[in-house]
């Protein structure tokens, strides 16, 4: 356990500035969104905004469109805005490619030349992914809390803590899912650049598959393949409970990919 603790501490120490900056930016983004929502609310412009949206977009979004164009909807947007999702997935990809980077730079040679089992390296990466995910989501929740308590009217129609929690849990599982997929890809690659590029393209393709699947009926038949399909912010904003199926699927992908990462890392040659 001392070894694992040393490995986790060393990895977190290396990425602390990056994580700190990402956390502050994401928290700040939540505050900015709340300021914006408050401003729209104060000027009673939600109805005007709704009229500006083209009818096909309303059709695509369905009833969630109404829920989205509220104070609560804008606040929750901070948990599924493409910029936020892009940033979180990028952080996941960056952290999950650390093992392949350590192989590429030769750093891991001096670790594995000691009595350190290979599975500790993967376990370390899983723990770093977990800690980072929890930290970033906590920072977002803190941003939301600060924004609501300091910059929003009390009667603006705040989202409930349960809704924010559900969004965070669902988003957190999505992040872990991509961490696991990237970790498995990294364990099969020799270069961090290759692992990052493959994972990034895969995430983009999956995001677009889900996006197109939501807007275009024929594409729906393949959209279930995308992990993003199981992140359901609109349904949550609409008042649905967090879907157990979504959690199981995302959790299942994460567990499966982490298991694959263990297998690949234990069998591979450590050569740079």
């Amino acid at each position: 356990m001392t070894v694992l603790f040393a490995l986790v501490a060393q990895s977190l120490r290396r990425v602390r500035k990056f994580l700190l900056a990402a956390g502050v930016l994401l928290a700040g983004f939540q505050v900015v969104l709340i300021l914006q929502a408050n401003s729209i609310q104060a000027s009673s412009s939600f109805a005007q905004m709704g009229n500006l949206v083209p009818s096909f977009a309303r059709e695509v979004l369905g009833p969630s469109f109404v829920a989205f164009l509220t104070f609560k909807g804008i606040v929750c947007l901070g948990y599924f805005h493409p910029v936020v999702m892009g940033a979180l997935i990028s952080v996941s990809l960056t952290l999950a490619t650390i093992p392949v980077m350590e192989i590429e730079t030769g750093f891991i040679d001096l670790v594995l030349a000691r009595p350190v089992a290979r599975h500790w390296i993967v376990t370390r990466s899983i723990l770093v992914a977990l800690i980072s995910t929890v930290y970033l989501l906590a920072m977002m929740a803190i941003g939301t809390w600060i924004g609501l308590n300091y910059y929003a009217a009390k009667d603006a129609g705040w989202p409930s803590a349960g809704l924010i929690g559900s969004l965070a849990v669902n988003l957190g599982l999505l992040m872990l899912c991509w961490s696991a997929i990237t970790l498995a890809i990294g364990c099969a690659c020799r270069r961090r650049g290759s692992a990052g590029a493959i994972s990034g393209l895969l995430a983009l393709a999956a995001y677009l598959t889900d996006y197109i699947g939501r807007a275009w009926k024929p594409a729906e038949s393949v959209a279930w393949l995308s992990p993003f399909r199981y992140y359901t912010p609109f349904e949550l904003v609409m008042g649905s409970a967090l879907s157990a199926k979504s959690l199981y699927v995302l959790g299942g992908i994460a567990v499966g990919a982490f298991a694959l990462a263990y297998l690949l890392y234990s069998r591979r040659d450590i050569s740079h």
Binding site: T2, V3, A6, L7, Q10, R14, E102, T105, G106, F107, I108, D109, L110, V111, L112, A113, R114, P115, V116, H272
Partner: peptide, 29 residues
Amino acid sequence: RSAVGYLPGEMGIYSDSTGHEMLSFWERV
């Protein structure tokens, strides 16, 4: 490996760490 001390041909080290930090890290692992 518990009996081995190893010096690689090329040292893979993080340039933002200090010598003390790296020696302590290698001791712990």
